[in-house]
Design a protein around this nucleic acid. Structure first.
Length: 190
DNA sequence: CTCGGGATGCGT
DNA sequence: CGCATCCCGAGG
């Protein structure tokens, strides 16, 4: 059970969004350790991606997206829910992977199918914004046995769909940038 | 300063 | 489909 290194995040965002499926997200809060297995993600591809927050340019909110890879970008949506993203690629790319659903593994406090719900269940709030994922509070590990997910077996294991709730993003809304483990019961909006 | 809308989720 | 609920970003 090894913490994923910086180099894992410092790669093409679509690759990260797919290969992060099956990894375990760990949040240590107080003396409680919560763990969920990532089963659904979305890729947000930098300033040119009209669906990405970074498309509006560098602002106080999106600052983290423009920073180095392997950090958490957490924001509040609709005044009620938090969403967890993981910054990818070189500093300045302003790309990230949104974590959309988890399979509960340990100490999850409520439902985990949906980006807002999983943050509630994992007790992830804006206090986690900017967290380095090489820290001991919030990080990812590759569980053992290693998940059998390979790029050349996408058709078997990874479902690809358009992203949710980004109809305003014109042609970017049509791209298949939402990834999930095919057949997994914890994927959102079945 | 105001104001409109949003990478959501739940109840009807 | 409506609504809860509030931060953010744009514009005056």
């Amino acid at each position: 059970m090894k913490k994923l290194p910086r180099s894992f995040y410092d790669r093409d965002t679509i690759r990260v969004a797919q290969e992060i499926l099956g990894m375990h997200l760990v949040h240590r809060n107080g003396n409680i350790e919560r763990i969920g297995r990532i089963v659904e993600t979305e890729a947000y591809l930098g300033e040119h991606d009209l669906a990405a927050h970074s498309a509006k340019g560098r602002t106080p909110r999106t600052e983290i997206m423009f920073g180095p890879p392997g950090h958490a970008y957490v924001y509040l949506i609709y005044g009620m829910y938090h969403c967890l993203n993981i910054v990818t690629e070189k500093e300045g790319h302003a790309s990230a992977v949104l974590i959309r659903a988890l399979e509960p593994i340990q100490n999850c406090d409520g439902r985990t199918s949906g980006p807002g719900l999983l943050c509630n269940a994992m007790h992830i709030t804006k206090a986690c914004n900017g967290q380095d994922l090489l820290s001991d509070e919030l990080f990812l590990i590759e569980p053992f046995p290693k998940p059998i997910l390979r790029q050349n077996q996408d058709k078997i294991f990874i479902a690809k769909r358009p992203r949710v709730g980004v109809d305003y993003a014109r042609h970017w809304a049509k791209r298949l940038l939402r990834f999930s483990i095919r057949g997994n019961a914890w994927v959102s909006r079945k």
